[in-house]
Amino acid sequence: MSSPSKAVRWAAALAVPLVLAAGAAPAFATGDTYTVNVHQKLPLTATGNGVERGECPTIPADKDGWHFVLPTNGTVFVKLTVTFEPGGQQVITNFGPPTDKHAYVASPVGATLTSAVAEVKGGKVNWFNLSHACPAKPPTTQPPTTQPPTTKPPTTTAPPTTAAPSTSKPPTDGTKTPAPATSSAGTGTPSSSASPSASDTVVPTPSKPASTGGGKSLAQTGSVAVGGLLAVAAVLVGGGILLRRRRGNHAA
Rank of each mutant, 00 (worst) to 15 (best):
A15P: 06
T30W: 09
P43T: 06
G31T: 15
G48K: 06
L14M: 15
K6T: 10
V36T: 06
L14Y: 05
G74E: 15
V36H: 05
V78C: 02
Q40R: 00
T47E: 10
L14Q: 07
V78S: 05
E52D: 07
F68V: 03
T99M: 09
T83I: 04
E85D: 15
A25P: 01
F84P: 00
F28H: 08
I92M: 03
F68N: 01
P60N: 06
G88A: 10
T47Y: 05
E55G: 00
K41Y: 04
L44Y: 03
P71A: 14
I92K: 03
N73F: 04
P86T: 03
T45W: 01
F95H: 03
H102L: 06
C56M: 09
P26Q: 07
D32G: 13
A46M: 08
Q89M: 09
T72A: 12
G87P: 00
L20N: 10
E85Y: 05
H39T: 06
T58H: 04
F28C: 06
K6C: 04
A29Y: 12
P97V: 10
D32L: 10
E85Q: 13
D32C: 03
L44T: 03
V91H: 02
I59L: 05
L80I: 12
H39G: 01
F95E: 13
V19R: 03
L20S: 10
D32I: 07
L14A: 15
F84K: 00
A103W: 00
A46S: 12
L20I: 13
H67N: 07
K101A: 12
N37Y: 09
V36D: 04
T93I: 11
R53K: 11
R53Y: 02
H67G: 02
L14E: 07
G31F: 09
A61M: 08
K79V: 15
F84D: 00
R9N: 13
V8S: 02
I59Y: 02
P98R: 12
A7S: 09
L44P: 02
V82K: 01
G65T: 04
K6R: 11
T93S: 14
D32E: 14
L80M: 13
A29R: 06
A24L: 14
P60L: 11
A21L: 15
T33L: 11
A103N: 03
V8H: 03
K6G: 08
V76K: 09
K63R: 14
C56R: 01
T72M: 06
P26N: 11
V19T: 12
L42C: 03
P57L: 14
L42H: 03
H39I: 04
A29G: 07
V69N: 02
V69D: 04
F77T: 02
P98V: 11
V38K: 00
P57H: 07
L42S: 01
V82N: 02
K101W: 01
P86F: 08
T83S: 10
I92P: 00
L14H: 06
E55C: 01
T33K: 07
V19S: 07
D62I: 07
F95G: 04
D100N: 14
P26A: 08
L80P: 08
G31H: 09
G31R: 11
A61D: 14
P98Q: 06
D64A: 03
T83K: 08
T93Q: 10
Y34G: 05
G48L: 11
T33G: 11
K101Q: 12
Q89T: 15
P60M: 08
A27G: 09
T93V: 14
A22Y: 05
L70Q: 05
L18P: 01
F68K: 01
N94V: 15
V69L: 13
N49K: 01
D64R: 02
